[in-house]
């Protein structure tokens, strides 16, 4: 589904060159729940951004459903992100000036979907994350866990094939973190949504199917979780 081939990401300034990713090769299959772990600054988030077509690698190429995206225009990349990918960020990144339901509608704004259909799908997504009672609230009226659930509903609203979650529980206490993890697991198991999650939390990572470890921009381990537990 997502194929990364010889991915390199190098940040260059006048005096220094920092290698964030070094020849990463990775294949994510449909229906997988993959967690990516590693110390801070090892390139996990950079990798997720490249997978999500938010950032360009300096070397190698990304292919979605077998199609390389290197030569895609800005609008074609935007369309791919809109239709295939949903994002969940550590710091939620909700739009403060919009209500919960308006936030959730966001991916559908960039599709040819009627206002009533948009609203219906946003409400369905909110129901899936248990926030039907908060549709008209604004983000600053919600707790951290509720905000992250709104962010997940937003990612779901567009019915994407893959969700990329960058430390989705990183800002939450353990109880709320568990709640969010349960939602993601349910999505993966019941609806078959492919999920790639960056996390620092070993316990969360062990609940997924596959665990990839990174160190200094390189992939140092890639194993099924049962193997990893042994």
């Amino acid at each position: 589904m997502i194929q990364l081939t010889d991915i390199e990401k190098v940040y260059r300034t006048k005096t220094i060159e920092t290698v964030a990713l070094n020849r990463v090769n990775l294949q994510i299959e449909r229906g997988e729940f993959v967690s990516i772990m590693g110390p801070s600054g090892c390139g996990k988030s950079t990798l997720l951004n490249i997978m999500g077509l938010l950032d360009e690698p300096t070397g190698g190429y990304v292919a979605i459903d077998g199609q390389p995206v290197k030569t895609h225009s800005d609008s074609k990349l935007a369309k791919l992100r809109n239709e295939k990918i949903g994002f969940v960020f550590q710091s939620y990144h909700l739009i403060h000036d919009l209500s919960v339901v308006d936030n959730v509608e966001l991916p559908l704004l960039y599709r040819n979907v009627s206002a009533s259909d948009r609203r219906k799908r946003a409400l369905e997504a909110l129901e899936k994350v248990g926030l039907s009672a908060r549709t008209k609230h604004f983000p600053n009226q919600l707790s951290g866990g509720q905000r992250q659930r709104v962010a997940i509903a937003r990612a779901l609203a567009g019915n994407p094939e893959i969700i990329l979650a960058d430390e989705p529980t990183g800002n939450l206490d353990s109880v709320m973190g568990e709640e969010i993890m349960d939602i993601l697991l349910r999505l993966n198991q019941e609806e078959g949504t492919t999920i790639v999650m960056v996390t620092h939390d070993e316990n969360m990572a062990l609940k997924t199917n596959r665990l990839i470890r990174f160190f200094d921009g390189q992939q140092v381990a890639d194993s099924m979780v049962i193997e990893a537990q042994i």
């Binding site: 935007a78 990144h93 960039y110």
Partner: peptide
């Protein structure tokens, strides 16, 4: 800028 980032992530092109 955060809003711009989010909109881009969810499918807004530069033209949008």
């Amino acid at each position: 800028s955060s809003e711009i980032g989010v909109r881009k992530a969810f499918g807004a092109s530069s033209a949008t």
